[in-house]
Design a protein around this nucleic acid. Structure first.
Lengths: 120, 120
DNA sequence: TTACACTTTAGAGCGCGCTCTAAGGCAACC
DNA sequence: GGTTGCCTTAGAGCGCGCTCTAAAGTGTAA
């Protein structure tokens, strides 16, 4: 499973411990027996994590999911809220990128000038 | 200063403690006396932090800056490296946004269907 | 048979980036 | 003089998200 999702076994067990992963089957030896659905869910959790959703929100989302289709509306609302948050974050990043690019330009200028100085 | 930069006094003192802020002047009472240059530097630190540069990299950058103009090239290289990292991160975010948007669409579909079911 | 590589658990530990506490000092106002 | 409100310091504490340890169990291969 770890190989399938890119999450460490530690993380997978941790997610199960805090209730993000529920109803994971076990085989005769008591080992976890992940299904393809489990894998899909884990991959979606990973998408959310990569977008920096806090764990407690993922937990909330996960709990809603466990409660069945009646929670679809709330789940959608959560995703939309997060989508908007990420969009704003990307705008800020873009803004800061601009400042960094300005600084890079400035440095290039300084490098050029110091070289000119050396050859004078 | 806190008001000027949006960082808490705690954070400002912490940054000084770890060497991100150096040479801050003091008045007669031993209180910190920030200059406009200090403020500018703090604002730039804030830009970097908002782009999630780790503190130890900011420290490295800050140390280079203290060493004077001879380090401009290396500083530029650091900024360029980070610029590229952020660009890649934004791509990943965009990708994940797509997946979230798909899920939102799916949920909308489910909501519509469940409503249709109810009115039949 | 014994070693190896994996699994299980509860709970401890860690790195990060702050954030706060405690104890004390100084300036201004009532 | 006392209170308020800000400043100083060293060092403790915190929330997050893992990550690892220790001790035990199981199946496979030499």
């Amino acid at each position: 499973m770890s190989a399938l999702t890119g999450l460490s076994p530690y993380t997978l067990r941790y997610y199960e411990k805090i209730g993000l992963l529920t109803g994971i089957a076990r085989n005769d030896q008591g080992y976890r027996d992940y299904t393809e659905q489990d894998a899909e869910w884990v991959r979606f959790l990973k998408v959310l994590r990569e977008m920096d959703i806090p764990i407690h929100e993922m937990k909330r989302y996960s709990d809603l999911r466990s409660q069945g289709p009646s929670t679809v509306k709330e789940r959608r609302a959560m995703l939309e809220a997060h989508r908007d948050r990420v969009a704003r974050q990307m705008e800020r990043l873009e803004e800061n990128m601009g400042k960094v690019r300005d600084k890079i330009k400035l440095y290039k200028q300084m490098e050029k000038e110091s070289e000119a100085g050396r050859t004078e």
